[in-house]
Computed example of a mutant assay.
Amino acid sequence: MYSPTPDDWQDANRARWDERVPIHVASDFYDLEAFRAGKDALRPFEIAEVGDVTGKTLLHLQCHIGLDTLSWSRHGAAQVVGLDFSEPAVETARGLAESLDLGPDRAAFVTADVYDAPTAVPDSSYDIVYTGTGALNWLPDIGRWAETAASLVAPGGFLYLAEFHPLTDTLDDGTGSVVTHDYFNREAWVDETPGTYADFDAPTVHNRSVEWQHPVGEVVTALAAAGLRIEFLHEHDATLFPRFGTLERGTDGHYRFPSDRPRIPLMYSLKATRPKPDQA
């Protein structure tokens, strides 16, 4: 249900994520055995849109257990840094890095709130600041996030965001065809759903979550106001899990509506650069 932002929103969300780390580690969704053996955690469109990361530094905000972060290292990034507010998630990420023989000079992980990233990460700026899926909905202030993320982009570097499309949060869970929620609502969404996207039936105790919806226009405007130049905004007709009961899994492992249904955007991605001083 919608409500004013509760005072304990961060503590509630952290408890929820801390509890789900071991569930995710053991899940087929993340499949850590396959990841250690070389499976890429990144989506093909992300790899294509980010481009060659060889020799570059990359900061991953809200990295969870670090699979995406470490995948960028495998793609050639000189150094990757992952940040997350969940200590169990960060410890898991560090363990994964060690199992892949990636020392802290190649892959480092820090525990901190995303808004505190500038004082928590090892360096003041990065060639690429990356944010993966399912991140922005946990943040109450998208303008503050944009300012924080933009401050960490080196001149000539860029921010890359891949996220679930907020339009999907307005639709009914069963069919994804009926608008049931307000796209422009700014209040917090407080929920008590047990389990997790990686295991819907997992027994869980800390089920309270506090989330926010951020329309695409709000995100783009916030990044532009923070001094970044929007290079592209792409919308995608596929998503990563069966968000609606009518979605069908394709051969690429992504979920789409049946071919006889009109398509809507299920995810979006954008790239925003920080101009060099002589380009500003």
Rank of each mutant, 00 (worst) to 15 (best):
R274I: 08
Y160E: 14
R106M: 07
L240A: 06
D169M: 07
V210S: 00
G38N: 11
L58C: 13
S151V: 00
R20N: 11
R249P: 00
T175Y: 13
Y126C: 05
I47Q: 07
G156H: 09
W189P: 03
Y126A: 03
E46V: 12
G76T: 14
A48V: 02
P275F: 05
L167A: 13
D252C: 14
A78I: 10
R208N: 06
R144D: 04
Y268E: 10
L266V: 09
H64I: 02
A41L: 08
D31N: 10
M267G: 12
D173C: 02
A112V: 06
F45E: 12
F241P: 02
P277S: 15
K39C: 05
W17Q: 14
T111R: 09
T196N: 05
A226W: 00
A97R: 03
A224Y: 12
G134R: 08
E49Q: 06
L167Q: 07
G66I: 08
H254W: 10
A108G: 08
W138K: 08
H60Y: 08
H206P: 07
D68I: 05
G227A: 04
D11I: 04
E49G: 02
W17M: 12
P6E: 11
D105N: 11
Y160S: 15
H165S: 05
A34Y: 13
G250C: 03
F257C: 04
A78W: 05
Y2S: 14
P4V: 08
V121E: 13
D278L: 04
S125T: 01
R186W: 10
H181Q: 06
V53Y: 08
D127Q: 13
P140Q: 12
V178Y: 10
P242S: 01
P118H: 00
A280S: 06
E19C: 03
Y268C: 11
S3T: 10
G38F: 03
S3E: 10
G82N: 13
D31H: 06
V178T: 15
L83N: 11
K56H: 08
A15E: 00
I142T: 01
